[in-house]
């Protein structure tokens, strides 16, 4: 409850702060709209030649794009700004102020910066998902919806944990800003179902940079395409990564304070 209220305060202050930069709002709208056009255009081109892509129908791909924008918006709104700020704090020594606060340092670091305009991606994703769901119609029952919600949440947690682990490396290497570039360059691959990629790339997108779990897996849930094993695996992976990233964070903090040395 305390952390929820804390998060709400950060969101409120984030909104107030960003109101100063109204131009950002328009830039983000244009940028997101362009991204969406490219994504939808891609689908249109593909489906003018064929009926399915790697077994995926048009409306399923539409749902995938919705998920891609939703999770991407979350990353750009909250995860990436907070983690970049964290790395900056380590470099400048201002992390000390977060560590002397009577609150969980991981939570404080993870919610510290909110770029509210990036929510445009999230807002765009909603009608896209809505249209996809309408066109899927009958095949989207209550079970599919529940599975979709669970996999979506798991995917988001996997991505968060992944970012946290990458950022935590800043304790040892200080200059790791470029790490986020690796992720952001892999991320657009999530616009397409991973099974259309060659095996090696699919492996990379699944296990090295877990893009697949945040995009392909939730999207495959809406049409009941997902297998039980994948569902359980995704939830288990989310739980495991959350725990491991938490553990790694604590190791990092101990290293930072010289307790492990």
């Amino acid at each position: 409850m305390y952390y929820f209220r804390l998060f709400a305060t950060y969101v409120r202050v984030g909104i107030l702060g960003e109101l100063e930069y109204r131009a950002n709002f328009w830039i983000n709208i244009i940028q997101s709209a362009l991204d969406l056009c490219v994504a939808l255009g891609g689908i249109a081109v593909v489906f003018s030649h064929t009926d399915t892509l790697g077994g995926w129908r048009q409306e399923e791909l539409l749902a995938l794009i919705g998920v891609y924008f939703l999770i991407g918006g979350l990353i750009r709104t909250l995860i990436r700004p907070s983690m970049i700020q964290f790395m900056e704090d380590v470099r400048q020594g201002t992390l000390d102020f977060k560590l002397t606060k009577p609150a969980d340092s991981q939570v404080l670091v993870s919610i510290q910066r909110i770029e509210i305009w990036r929510l445009v991606d999230v807002l765009i994703s909603l009608p896209v998902l809505g249209i996809a769901f309408l066109r899927l119609g009958a095949s989207l029952g209550p079970i599919e919806s529940a599975v979709f919600a669970v996999t979506l949440l798991s995917g988001a947690l996997i991505i968060y944990s992944f970012w946290l682990m990458l950022s935590t490396c800043a304790f040892w290497f200080v200059k790791v800003e470029n790490i986020q570039v690796i992720f952001m360059s892999m991320w657009p691959a999530g616009r397409w179902p991973v099974n259309i990629y060659p095996t090696w790339l699919r492996a990379v997108l699944t296990f090295l940079v877990p893009v697949a779990f945040a995009t392909t897996v939730p999207a495959s849930a809406v049409s009941g395409r997902i297998t039980g094993a994948t569902l359980i695996g995704t939830v288990a992976l989310a739980a495991a990564m959350l725990l491991v990233s938490r553990w790694f964070w604590r190791v990092g903090i101990r290293f930072y304070s010289g307790a492990s040395a």
Binding site: R5, L6, T9, Y10, R12, V13, L16, G17, E20, K101, P102, A103, L108
Partner: peptide, 14 residues
Amino acid sequence: DIPVIDTFELNRAV
């Protein structure tokens, strides 16, 4: 980037 009083507000919450 934010007004001073907003940082105060964050500390109040923390």
